[in-house]
Amino acid sequence: MSARRKWLRSISLLLSIVIGCSGIVGVLPAAAASPIAVYLYQDFENYTGTGTPPSGFEMTGISDVKKSSGALRNEHTAPNGTSVALRIEEAVADQPDVGLAKRFGADDLTGEIIFDFDIKSLDSNGSKFFEIKDSGNKGITLGNLGADGILRVEGNKVPLNPNQWYRLSFAIDFRPDVQKVSVYVDGVKKLDSVVLKNGNQAVGINYVRVRAKRSPQADLTPDVTGSNNFTTLLDNMRMYSGTELKTMEELQAIQVPDSLMDFDNDLGISVQDRLAGALAMVVDSPNVLMDM
């Protein structure tokens, strides 16, 4: 065989093997591995349900409050598109609550974690609570947004306005001996390293919830639509590791596969099939020349 033909065969074999195996060992990464772990990333644009939670979430509360909660897309959700509306109607007795929650497998997350979401109150008919729990259901309240529009975090106060979208970000530092939180409103730090009360001795984060609790019926006032309902809108909910706030677009970029292996696994292609494809490329390549 001529030297040229040997050289062509060698190059063909090398390229076929590299391309075929890149999905296994990440030889050709599409992007460098990100140090940020994304645990939750949801804009709810594909959510259309009422009385049922978005896929992967839980809706807490009695049936009478769940059936009036769900997807909402109107002038009040703009510019966010479809949002989750936690709504309790005036006719429901007592002081009921409804919540949107998310669990994260069986492990408890610790370290530096950010719980980040958009929120809007359409009335002053109740309070909102922002909660985390561990896998043993032991919880910590990060803060609460009262009917008076005041965000309270362990005695600290941040005033907010009704009928206005806010981005609330809780930057949590969860350590075995102490748990702290810094609070951002629309990306601006309002509270720094507030020590959280952990009377239940939670050991990590396995569950997050935004819970809306309505005021007594006698205290209800008309909302933006003229009714005495209690409605809280939620959108762009995310949770990720680190100390730096990330936009939805930045988190979407982080979700890009790091290698052909990740891409193939997203498509459901096994490593064995990938190897078989690599071998087929070698055998079938018109550039592979056999010794005669």
Rank of each mutant, 00 (worst) to 15 (best):
L196D: 01
R214L: 06
L145G: 02
Q42W: 10
N144Q: 03
A280L: 14
A31D: 10
D284T: 12
R4I: 13
S10D: 11
R167V: 06
L72P: 00
A37P: 01
S169L: 02
I119N: 02
A91I: 10
D118R: 07
L15F: 11
D94M: 10
L122C: 03
G187R: 10
D264C: 12
G146W: 01
M239K: 04
G199I: 02
M292G: 10
D258G: 09
D123A: 13
G23W: 00
A30I: 14
G204F: 08
I269R: 09
N137E: 07
N125R: 04
N206A: 14
I62R: 06
Q179I: 14
G268D: 08
D108V: 11
D108M: 11
V208Q: 00
D123S: 12
S12V: 15
I88V: 11
D192N: 11
Y39I: 04
G146H: 01
R103I: 03
M237D: 00
S16V: 11
G226T: 10
N228W: 01
N80I: 02
N156G: 00
L15T: 13
Y47K: 03
Q252Y: 14
I24S: 08
L8V: 15
Q272F: 15
Q201D: 09
D173T: 15
S69E: 02
S127P: 00
N161K: 14
A30E: 11
R73S: 09
S227V: 03
D284S: 12
R214G: 12
E75A: 11
V194I: 14
S270F: 13
G204E: 03
R103F: 07
P176A: 07
V178E: 06
G146R: 00
A101Q: 10
D192V: 09
K246I: 09
G242S: 00
D148L: 05
A101G: 05
G226R: 02
A71Q: 05
Q179T: 13
D116V: 11
M281P: 02
V203E: 07
D273Q: 15
P96W: 11
L220C: 10
A106L: 11
G277H: 05
E249G: 10
I88C: 03
M248T: 04
R274S: 13
T141A: 00
N125V: 07
I113V: 14
I17N: 06
